[in-house]
Simulated assay, not measured.
Amino acid sequence: MRLYIKRDDLIHPVISGNKWRKLKYALVEARQKGVTEIISFGGGYSNHLHALGYCCNKLGIQFMALVRGNYRATPTPMLKDLADWQAQIVYLDKATYQLRSQTDFIAKWQAAHPHALIIPEGGSQTQALAGVAELLNEQTQHFSHIVLPVGSGGTLAGLIAAASTNAADTRLIGIAVLKGQDYLEQQVSALLPQHSFDNWLIDHDFHFGGYAKRNQGLLAFCSTFYQQTQVPIEPVYSGKAAWALKQRLADGYFPPGSQILLLHTGGLQGARTQ
């Protein structure tokens, strides 16, 4: 048995990992169409908003971040970066934020900003699949299993579609980072072409109580992991995926001879203090 880590956190110091891959073709199309404003959604530590805010600043596109919760009194490092990049930040209460994927809610924002491109939370949309597929195409060896964190489903969906063509016997194991059994499966399936795939599953045993929830054990694990490997991980995404993999290895889940790839999807906003 062999274990590998794909360091997608090293793509770029700001727009690392799956955030760049999911945004790439949406931004290419935005440039081609002359889009002057982009609107998207996320939490106070969102890797997606951070990456998109940076890209919009570099491309000269106005960015509006619709943020879950009110951080006016205590802005996070991510939100301070957005402000430095001239993003417009709008804070939404929890009840309003829950409407973010509903047609009427999107239509309201589109009507108020008729020339804006609205990108879903996490960048998870059909355009993201091609960018994520490039991740798998970069690999020069075969893996029996790929393990990765799952938050909005776009990265897993892209890998499922790509693997069905290029690595049909590779098993994709998503580690849920939030409470979302059935919901996450529906999110992934909605992004896939209209036929079924049987090369994936989502493990819901390691979300630690919900999105961004953690305990001292997980925090200590992230610290120890870095000390032993010099690979930085955080407790929101990569830390939960690494913890889950360690536990499943101890459980004997993987058959002898497995070639396992742990995908570090980048984004370390959850570990920042400044």
Rank of each mutant, 00 (worst) to 15 (best):
Q125W: 12
F143N: 00
G122F: 10
L136C: 01
T126R: 14
L148V: 09
L135V: 05
G153D: 07
A130F: 10
L136F: 00
Q127V: 08
Y183E: 13
G180Y: 08
L136E: 00
A163D: 11
F143Q: 02
I160A: 06
T165W: 07
G131C: 09
A168P: 13
A157M: 14
A130H: 11
A130V: 06
N166R: 15
G151H: 03
T170K: 05
I173D: 08
Q141N: 09
G158I: 01
A133S: 11
G131K: 05
L136W: 01
G158Q: 00
G123C: 06
T170E: 05
F143C: 00
L184N: 05
I173W: 09
Q181L: 09
A161H: 12
L184V: 04
G151W: 02
Q127T: 07
G180A: 14
L159R: 03
Y183C: 08
E134Y: 00
H142T: 13
Q181Y: 11
G123I: 01
A162Y: 03
G151P: 05
I160D: 07
A163N: 15
I146L: 07
L172G: 06
L184G: 02
L172M: 08
E121G: 05
G174L: 04
Q127I: 08
A128C: 13
G122W: 10
G131A: 08
L148E: 03
R171N: 14
V177Q: 10
H145N: 13
L129I: 02
L159E: 05
V147C: 12
A168I: 14
Q181T: 14
E121T: 05
G131F: 04
